[in-house]
C-alpha cells in the first residue's frame, strides 16, 4: 500500500512516517503542499492521501475526487459513516484521509488509527507551543505597561502591577488587554 502524506513541516512529516511504517507494511511518501499538489500526488499513484485539516492546500486535493482529474482512480474522502467514532476522531485530531476508490475500509482502519494518534500528539504540542508563545508575548506587554506607569507616575514596580490589575478587575477586562490599551494610548500621546 502506498500512502502519501502532505506536510510541509519536516519534523512533523518524519514523525508521521515513522508511526505509519511501524503500523503496516507500506510505502510512505511525504510531499509539500506547494505548487502542483494534485499532479504530484497523482504521480505517486497512492492508495491513501493524508493531510492536516488546517492546511489550506487541502482544497487542491478536491481536484483528485473528480473522475476526470489527474488521477485515473478517483479518490473519496474517508467517511465510512459520517457518524462513526473513527471519522469523528479523525476530524477532531485534524486528519483528512482521502482513499482511492475501492479500497477496503478494514485495510485503512489501522493506518488511520495510527495517524489519528500521531496527529493528536502533534496538535497538542502545537497548542501548547502557541499558548507558551502567547503567554510570553503578554508578559512582555505587561512589563512594558508597568514600565510606562512607573515612569509617568513615579511609582514602584509592585505598585504599577497592582494598579494594572485593579484597573483590569474594575473594567472586567484581561490584564494584558488593559496593558495593551495603555501602550497604545502612550504611543498616540508621545
Amino acid at each position: 500500500m502506498t500512502i502519501v502524506v502532505v506536510e510541509n513541516d519536516r519534523t512533523r512529516a518524519l514523525a508521521i512516517v515513522d508511526a505509519l511504517k511501524d503500523a503496516d507494511d507500506c510505502e510512505v511518501i511525504v510531499i509539500g503542499s506547494d505548487s502542483g499538489l494534485a499532479r504530484k500526488i497523482a504521480a505517486h499513484d497512492p492508495d491513501v492521501v493524508l493531510i492536516d485539516v488546517h492546511d489550506p492546500s487541502r482544497d487542491k486535493i478536491e481536484e483528485l475526487t473528480l473522475a476526470s482529474g489527474p488521477l485515473d482512480r478517483p479518490v473519496a474522502m474517508f467517511v465510512p459513516n459520517a457518524a462513526s467514532a473513527l471519522s469523528r476522531a479523525a476530524v477532531e485530531a485534524g486528519v483528512s484521509a482521502y482513499v482511492v476508490d475501492g479500497m477496503a475500509p478494514e485495510r485503512l482502519r489501522p493506518i488511520l488509527e495510527v495517524a489519528i494518534a500521531r496527529f493528536q500528539v502533534m496538535r497538542q504540542m502545537r497548542a501548547e507551543l502557541e499558548q507558551t508563545r502567547r503567554a510570553l508575548e503578554e508578559r512582555k506587554i505587561i512589563d512594558r505597561a508597568k514600565g510606562l506607569l512607573m515612569k509617568s507616575r513615579g511609582i514602584g514596580e509592585d505598585e504599577a502591577y497592582a494598579l494594572l490589575r485593579k484597573t483590569a478587575m474594575d473594567q472586567n477586562r484581561r490584564l494584558a488587554d488593559v496593558a495593551q490599551a495603555l501602550i497604545t494610548a502612550a504611543e498616540l500621546l508621545a
Binding site: V53, H54, P56, D59, E62, M77, A82, V91
Partner: peptide, 15 residues
Amino acid sequence: APSWSAARDMLILGQ
C-alpha cells in the same frame, strides 16, 4: 475554517 473542504466537512460531521 482553513479551507472550503474543511468548512463543508465540519458541517457534514455536525461540528
